[in-house]
Simulated assay, not measured.
Amino acid sequence: MTLIILCLVAAHFFAFNVGASGSAATMGIVYGARVIKKKRIALLLSGVGGLLGALWGGEVVDTIGKGLISSDKLTIQAAAIILFVSAITLCFTNIIGIPLSTSEVTIGAIVGVGISLQQLYLRNLLEIIAFWVIIPVAAFFITFISGMLLKRLKDKFPAFLPSNKLTKLLSILLIITGLLEAFAAGMNNVANAIGPLVGADVLNKNIGLLTGGIFIALGSLLLGGKVLETNGKKISYLSLSDGIVISGTSGLLVLGASIFGIPLPMTQVTTSAIVGVGATKDWKGIWKNKVIHQIAKVWISSPMISLVIAFCLTEIFLQSNFYTVVIITSGILATLILTNFGKGTFEKRQKTQRSLEEEF
Score class of each variant (00 low, 15 high):
residue 250 S to N: 04
residue 10 A to S: 15
residue 81 I to G: 03
residue 209 L to G: 09
residue 294 Q to A: 14
residue 159 A to H: 08
residue 40 R to I: 01
residue 157 F to E: 14
residue 15 A to G: 00
residue 136 P to S: 10
residue 253 L to Y: 05
residue 203 L to Y: 06
residue 65 G to I: 06
residue 39 K to C: 03
residue 237 Y to R: 13
residue 108 G to W: 03
residue 205 K to Y: 04
residue 305 I to R: 02
residue 118 Q to A: 12
residue 111 V to A: 09
residue 134 I to K: 12
residue 289 N to A: 08
residue 207 I to V: 10
residue 35 V to A: 07
residue 357 E to Q: 15
residue 121 Y to E: 09
residue 172 I to H: 14
residue 164 N to C: 09
residue 332 I to K: 03
residue 143 T to H: 12
residue 323 Y to M: 08
residue 324 T to C: 04
residue 330 S to C: 12
residue 204 N to E: 14
residue 249 T to K: 03
residue 200 A to M: 02
residue 36 I to S: 05
residue 282 D to F: 01
residue 299 W to Y: 14
residue 9 V to T: 11
residue 53 G to V: 00
residue 55 L to N: 06
residue 65 G to V: 08
residue 5 I to M: 09
residue 67 G to S: 00
residue 118 Q to I: 05
residue 186 G to F: 01
residue 239 S to Q: 15
residue 193 A to S: 13
residue 75 T to N: 08
residue 302 S to Q: 15
residue 308 V to A: 04
residue 18 V to N: 10
residue 118 Q to T: 10
residue 317 F to S: 05
residue 82 I to R: 01
residue 6 L to W: 11
residue 113 V to R: 10
residue 178 G to K: 11
residue 57 G to I: 00
residue 26 T to G: 05
residue 237 Y to L: 10
residue 95 I to W: 04
residue 154 K to D: 11
residue 25 A to Y: 03
residue 43 L to K: 01
residue 138 A to H: 02
residue 327 I to Q: 02
residue 65 G to N: 00
residue 209 L to N: 07
residue 331 G to V: 13
residue 211 T to G: 07
residue 285 G to E: 10
residue 34 R to S: 13
residue 153 L to T: 01
residue 129 I to S: 02
residue 213 G to T: 03
residue 34 R to N: 14
residue 348 K to Y: 13
residue 84 F to R: 06
residue 301 S to C: 11
residue 63 T to L: 02
